[in-house]
Design a protein around this nucleic acid. Sequence first.
DNA 1: CGGTTTTGACCAGCGC
DNA 2: GCGCTGGTCAAAACCG
Length: 237
Amino acid sequence: MMSTTNIVNHHSLFDEEQQDHEIPMQMGFNIPFPPNMTLPPLGNCHDQSLKGVSAIITPEAATFAEALLATAVQKPREFQDLASGFGCGGGQNLDLNRSRMNSWAWGEVSDCWIGKRSNGGDDHNHIGVSAAIKMKKMKGRRKVREPRFCFKTMSDIDVLDDGYKWRKYGQKVVKNTQHPRSYYRCTQDSCRVKKRVERLAEDPRMVITTYEGRHAHSPSNELEESQTHSELANFFW
DNA sequence: CGGTTTTGACCAGCGC
DNA sequence: GCGCTGGTCAAAACCG
């Protein structure tokens, strides 16, 4: 069991009083990289639309990272408890609820990374997931958009298994790209979460997955909460 | 037969 | 107002 797990959580709360300007917000975490996973050589990415992506990881790790972040977003309290159980800093508080994500008027992911980082002086591998989101509250009435999170991963598979069940509802070739963008919607009734999957024009090996909204339910029925916890536990071995 | 995918049409937002 | 573009709809095709 590793004892140096580090949850990184830095965000500023949405301020209702602020009008018509951008409000930066960041969320995420670092955890030790499991010994049974291997990393390919890491490199920097220079994609204008997704600035700050720092590294590339294996599809397996990426899938798990996505599931982790989904858990952190959907069940911040449980995620915090779970992380604490694995020796995460108790003082850290993954308090995403307070950010009132669903009240954001408008948001775009301006930065994200999934990768490997050194932890201070020692060079332990960490898998990290973070999303820096620039929020913008507009004057006047404007269509409310759900918060969005995106991930960039290296994978042959377009749709990574994040524990939820998705139905494809559209595909579009976007300008200046060779690869089509696919649109998916959560199959759960009353759940409005959507995700977009596309390949990076500059590097088709990279898959960009963008989630929009928050699930109003647990991951698909087969993946009960206890199982999710079990998977999270397995991640550390 | 029911659920999912495909794909062309349609719609809305935005810039000019 | 018009054209461009991204996002969604919905009918048909596909599949287990």
